[in-house]
């Protein structure tokens, strides 16, 4: 669905690269996570893939089309949700979707159904200018599905939404994936990536550090950890110990034999911890 070879991009048209020689493939039906801290080059990459930014160096095939050529009909197969919501503030929610639907040559989804899907029912006739930030964001997200896209670009689909609504959006993405939609998901939220993505790419300073499935990453980089809380001299003490470390394993035995255990959990390293381990940087 997407094939990117040696893509670079500089906003200033010089050696300062926002995206530096990246290559990756996204196969049909896959949910591909593009993860990295702010300023890593995620939106820049999505911009080039969707044709909004002029391609400078490298080769990009998206949904069978070479992005170097201007072929507007390719957008019949593509849906794009933007990081910053962009809907017509003078039009109502429904008018926004109706207008957009008319720009496609393929069968489109019912605007009212989409509005309901993202939890905006009852707001069909309200002008988008009166919407809150999160509501506009959801409308932008809903709009990206209007042409039943085969390939779906989502830039930070859940950022700034409250947990319930974020969960709804996650469910919609899962549902689309189940129906075979290929998704290019840009985010700096590792939990979402972990939950939704078949594979993730770690990008930092315009460079892709690695690409793998979340499971493989955890097996490779994550160590099983045990959190133990026990009482010693009337005080609660907390320790985190690695199950693969001999010294730590002995210590677990000691604690279990000698103290009163309050809680004991095993846990996996999160994608976030792995990201820090791989890149040496946090995700903010």
């Amino acid at each position: 669905m997407i094939s990117v070879k040696n893509l670079s991009h500089s906003y200033s048209n010089d050696e300062k690269l926002a995206v530096n020689n990246i290559s990756f493939e996204v196969t049909k039906g896959e949910t591909f996570g593009f993860l990295g801290p702010s300023g890593a080059g995620k939106s820049t990459t999505q911009g080039i893939l969707t044709g909004l930014l002029k391609q400078q160096r490298g080769e990009v095939i998206v949904a069978g089309y070479n992005t170097m050529k201007v072929q507007n009909e390719r957008f019949n197969k593509i849906g794009v949700s933007f990081e910053q919501s962009n809907v017509y503030s003078k039009l109502t929610a429904k008018e926004n979707l109706e207008f957009y639907a008319k720009l496609f040559d393929v069968p489109t989804r019912d605007p009212e159904e989409l509005i309901r899907l993202v939890g905006l029912e009852g707001k069909e006739k309200v002008r988008a200018g009166e919407f809150s930030k999160g509501m506009k964001h959801r409308l932008t997200f809903a709009r990206s599905m209007i042409n039943n896209p085969e390939l779906w670009f989502l830039d930070e689909p859940t950022t700034g939404l409250d947990p319930t609504i974020a969960a709804t959006i996650k469910d919609i993405i899962k549902e689309q994936a189940a129906q075979g939609t290929t998704t290019f998901l840009t985010t700096h939220n590792m939990y979402i990536a972990d939950e939704l993505c078949d594979r993730v790419a770690f990008i930092i300073d315009g460079v892709i550090k690695l690409i793998d499935t979340p499971r493989n990453l955890k097996l490779q980089y994550g160590q099983k950890l045990i959190d133990i809380e026990y009482i010693n001299n009337g005080k609660v003490i907390k320790e985190t110990l690695k199950t693969i470390d001999d010294h730590d394993r002995k210590r677990i035995g000691e604690i279990v034999n000698n103290y009163d255990i309050q809680t004991m959990h095993s846990k996996e390293a999160t994608l976030e911890e792995i990201f820090i381990q791989v890149t040496g940087r946090g995700l903010v």
Binding site: N72, E73, R74, Y100
Partner: peptide, 18 residues
């Protein structure tokens, strides 16, 4: 100017409309 304020030109640019 309205389209620019709403940032909607981008949205239209990812449709088959030329």
């Amino acid at each position: 100017v309205g389209e620019k304020a709403d940032n909607t030109i981008n949205a239209v640019n990812v449709t088959p409309l030329s």
